[in-house]
Design a protein around this nucleic acid. Structure first.
Lengths: 133, 133
DNA sequence: CTGCCACTTAAAGTCAACTTGAGGTCAAGC
DNA sequence: GCTTGACCTCAAGTTGACTTTAAGTGGCAG
């Protein structure tokens, strides 16, 4: 259970084999070797891929993700860069919170048009400010 | 200042004219009319587009965003659907929090390899759980 | 009335992130 | 030893979200 075939990795992560090959191709993940032609991965690949999926879901491009974590799963970026990324994510969390609140509000507010509701307008103002920045 | 040319909307929102035309084409926004050939928008378009930008930044597709807000800026989806969307965003916020914490941890943790650090492994476990769901 | 310029359309092009397809390889089970 | 099936490569195709291009239109300043 130390070394995994690409198919095993696919099964454990829920990521398609073709996608894993693609990630390997672009250097986002790295196989530990080959058995014949077959790529073999160490068990840490599963964690790496989970992180990649997380980053993707967070709206980061594969390039940006590659900039956060190395193919071997380690990170050796300067701290300020990492903190910068974290701050970026924090901003995104705040944006999402606005969106979520807007949605929840819309689900509950009895105003005839939401554009007339002061609470909704306030949410939109926040959205506008973020948009322009 | 009631009615805006597409160029004015572009300027106020920071979104390219071609993009606005594209949004119009796919029914994501709606012009209130034309002056000659020129599309005209009401001032609410600015808020709508801010919301679209917000949703995009949050990683939603234009289709998904279209499913949240109508072209005219109002919403008339059933409440459970809206709450479902909000819950989805909540999950995403939690995911982002994991990613942010992982990043911040990596920036600070002195462990030789992060894969050996128990705190990091715990973060990854959370990531793994989310990935499979 | 003329020219300008921001707009118009339709179609084609671009980019990221994959997926699909055709044809090939190899280790394992029968 | 032969088949099977999961893998391989390389190229081409797909999708979403736009942007670009070419050719045209029309309101307004001079």
């Amino acid at each position: 259970m130390e070394i995994l075939d690409i198919g095993d990795v696919a099964e454990r992560t829920g990521v398609a084999v073709s996608t894993l090959r693609y990630y390997d191709e672009i250097g986002l993940i790295a196989s530990v070797g080959r058995r014949g032609l077959r790529r073999q991965f160490g068990p840490e690949a599963v964690w790496q891929i989970a992180l990649i999926a997380l980053g993707k879901k967070a709206g980061f491009s594969l390039d940006e993700i590659a900039g956060m974590f190395r193919a071997n799963g380690t990170v050796d970026l300067p701290r300020p860069v990492l903190h910068g990324r974290a701050d970026e994510i924090d901003r995104q969390i705040r944006d999402l919170t606005v969106l979520r609140d807007a949605l929840r509000h819309v689900a509950e507010c009895p105003a005839p048009s939401h554009l007339e509701c002061p609470r909704f307008r306030k949410l939109l103002r926040v959205a506008g400010r973020r948009g322009k920045a």
